[in-house]
Design a protein around this nucleic acid. Structure first.
Lengths: 215, 215
DNA sequence: ATTATATCATATGTCGACAAATTTTTAGTG
DNA sequence: CACTAAAAATTTGTCGACATATGATATAAT
């Protein structure tokens, strides 16, 4: 029996489209976003766009200053702070994943690693970026903690956005190796060590971003 | 020179009022919330209320199921998950507070402790609840990490809401003592130990809530 | 040329109205 | 009395219109 398909309401579609657009770097940080123009582009009225804007501002992706809507522009301090939060939450994620990860998810990680190796050989920065994100996503979801997944969604979004808008998809070389180590530690169910490597891994990620900003 | 006062826009006022209402337990978990009724009560039109609803649903305080809006009803699993996240983030908060807390904030903590001792003698559960929250808030703000403060705002809100809707302001006896220990460790700048006590403190908090649910 | 003022354009805030979907009530029939 | 069907009421989704505030532009005066 086929279920009835209900189209998503316009404000949700708008939310997802605009969010994706911001993440993909289609808008400049601090660029103004205009309700009416967005509504025209999407072919809908201002109402649903407004709702989407309000949701995005709760996510921290849009800011309301003096009444203008602007795309979030992370300050350097923000980057540091976000990575501190990320470290805290992703170490929780991996310590939970140690016990909760499924066979299927372990396979996904394995596939991710082979693809990462290939992309690394080809020096494809954009591809590496996607695969890095996917690797972390798999682990986060493997934690099976919904509240954590939701919280990290906000962080992930900002990190992803920063990568596309500030750092142009560059990675330090050892990150592939670190992913492989984390994968092996998950296999061995070595939680303490996995947490340790993840901490280092994320700290290096921050260093990479900061270095890129100061140049 | 007096500054010009701009009234907050209606959707923001609505957001704050409704959020406060939910936190104070004026609505039952899973109770339906109706845009038009809320708008009538607040004396405004549905538009701004809708926007407030969308923001609250991003906070996780309202849920949209099949199109109706309901007040968040935490499952037991949610409680566990939220406390796991809280532990992770509040330990980060206190480790940052160790270096960043100001003299003024230390005084606020000190005052909080004397008030807590009094409320504890009087066995005033509601008062203790407020003071407990205040104690943690001071430390969270003392971390000076804006992103962390924002993330914990979501968690705090849910915890506060759970306390009012599920547990009726009961506390285990040793929590006062633990606050005092944490305060002393902050004075001594003993980060490692402070983190340890905070972890235990929050774990006990979860146990208290779970025990209350299973009875 | 520069400053001040007035005019116009643009963008957000707010509202009311209508459409569509869902629930509740009512009425009718076996 | 129970069950079905129809009608009414309720509620969310969406839109367009108007008001207000802010910014930009053009015009005039010194």
């Amino acid at each position: 029996m086929n279920r009835i398909i209900k189209p998503e309401s316009l404000h949700l579609q708008a939310y997802n489209i605009i969010k994706k657009g911001i993440l993909e770097g289609n808008y400049q940080p601090s660029e103004r976003m205009i309700e009416a123009k967005m509504a025209d582009q999407l072919g809908i009225s201002r109402g649903p766009v407004r709702e989407a804007f309000r949701m995005l501002s709760q996510d921290g992706l849009l800011t309301y200053n003096d009444g203008f809507v602007r795309v979030y522009q992370p300050a350097v301090q923000d980057v540091v702070e976000i990575f501190q939060c990320r470290e805290s939450l992703e170490t929780l994620a991996i310590s939970l994943a140690i016990t909760n990860i499924s066979h299927e998810e372990m396979e996904q990680l394995s596939n991710n690693l082979t693809e990462t190796a290939i992309a690394s050989d080809h020096n494809s920065g954009i591809e590496l970026g996607k695969l890095d994100q996917q690797f972390h996503d798999i682990i986060i979801n493997a934690s099976k903690n919904k509240q954590l997944i939701e919280l990290l969604e906000v962080i992930r979004t900002k990190i992803h956005y920063m990568r596309n808008s500030m750092v142009n998809g560059e990675f330090y070389p050892s990150f592939v190796e670190e992913h492989e180590r984390i994968y092996r530690l998950l296999l061995e169910r070595n939680g303490a060590e996995a947490v340790k490597i993840m901490k280092v891994h994320i700290k290096k990620g921050l260093d990479g971003v900061l270095q890129h900003i100061n140049s």
